[in-house]
């Protein structure tokens, strides 16, 4: 072995003696120092429910994007998609933990043992009818074009909400939103860059991008109609009324599609909320089956 006492020492040599094995752990907890008390006049049940809406959207979309890992076009895109999924997973964890902290756990605690943290009880031990995500994020990926259109729409919608949520009277939501805005801006721009290239690329990519847009546009119907919870919380200065984001979202999407030489599909007629009230198609149950299966086989386990 000669002069190397351990294999790790060779690394130090190789790195000119600096050899920082461990990176700094200067990770900022976005909620560190944030006041977590529920603002006056706000029903904790409403607040928790709202956190589930935003958290479930992020969790479900992260799961969909993760399905691309080891299957993406080019390694560069593999890395980019993983970054987006990691950001969304991070947002989901904060929001689900916040829901749990104000006591909104649904029926999850009937199945999850005490050792399981709130975020995991909520993610793994709620059934589909307790999820508050929209059909937009639950829809299957389709091809890369449809995945990109969905990411563009979902991140544009979420960015419009988060940008306003930075002013929320709930300091926790405001902090989560402030962190999320940068991430979501990046996600939206990534999707927009790709859509330009697919829409204005080859005949095949144009055709696929148009088909993706047509398929995803239908899912816009219930995104901008507030639930009663959102209405009450908006009045209390805590939540964002999705109706107030519609024009902005529409204008962004139209701009991107036009630059991508795509036909803007007709805006669907507004429909009352479905996913936000726990009404889902079979694709969410299927997604949750995979996500939750192992955790549910071992409800007393710690990981």
């Amino acid at each position: 072995m000669g002069h190397e006492e351990t294999v790790y020492e060779a690394l130090d040599h190789a790195h000119g003696g600096e050899g920082h094995w461990a990176f700094g752990t200067g990770f900022d907890d976005p909620l560190a120092g944030v006041d977590t008390t529920v603002p006056d006049g706000v029903d904790p049940a409403d607040l928790g429910e709202y956190c589930l809406m935003l958290g479930d959207d992020a969790l479900v979309l992260a799961q969909r994007l993760t399905q691309w890992i080891t299957a993406a076009p080019e390694l560069e895109e593999e890395v980019a998609i993983a970054n987006v999924a990691l950001d969304l997973l991070g947002q989901a964890r904060l929001l689900l933990a916040r829901a749990g902290s104000v006591g909104v756990l649904g029926r999850s605690r009937e199945k999850a043992t005490e050792s399981i943290p709130d975020e995991d009880a909520l993610a793994y031990f709620r059934d589909a009818d307790e999820f508050r995500s929209t059909a937009l994020v639950a829809a299957p990926n389709g091809d890369f074009a449809q995945t990109i259109v969905r990411l563009l729409v979902a991140s544009t919608v979420r960015l419009a909400v988060f940008a306003r949520l930075r002013e929320s009277r709930d300091p926790v939501l405001a902090a989560i939103a402030a962190k999320g805005v940068n991430e979501l801006t990046y996600h939206r721009d990534h999707a927009a860059r790709w859509l330009l290239r697919l829409g204005d690329g080859t005949d095949e990519s144009h055709r696929r991008a148009q088909a993706g847009a047509d398929a995803i546009w239908r899912l816009l119907d219930d995104l901008f109609v507030p639930t009663d919870v959102e209405r009450r919380l908006t009045e209390a200065g805590v939540a964002v009324d999705p109706a107030g984001t519609r024009d902005e979202v529409r204008s962004v999407l139209v701009q991107v599609l036009e630059r991508a030489t795509l036909r803007v599909p007709g805006w669907p007629a507004e429909a009352p909320p479905r996913g936000r009230l726990g009404q889902h198609g079979p694709e969410l149950a299927e997604l949750l089956g995979v996500l939750q299966g192992l955790a549910r086989q071992h409800p007393a386990a710690t990981w």
């Binding site: 993760t66 399905q67 890992i69 080891t70 993983a82 964890r93 793994y124 192992l294």
Partner: peptide, 28 residues
């Protein structure tokens, strides 16, 4: 990667995703 979708906690899922992503980076 076969376990990414079924990782049994959100923390483990994030860790595993970051790791698998690293491997793509290493390949590159």
């Amino acid at each position: 990667g076969d376990w990414l979708l079924a990782a049994p906690s959100l923390r483990r899922k994030a860790i595993l995703l970051a790791k698998v992503q690293d491997e793509a980076g290493h390949g590159m």
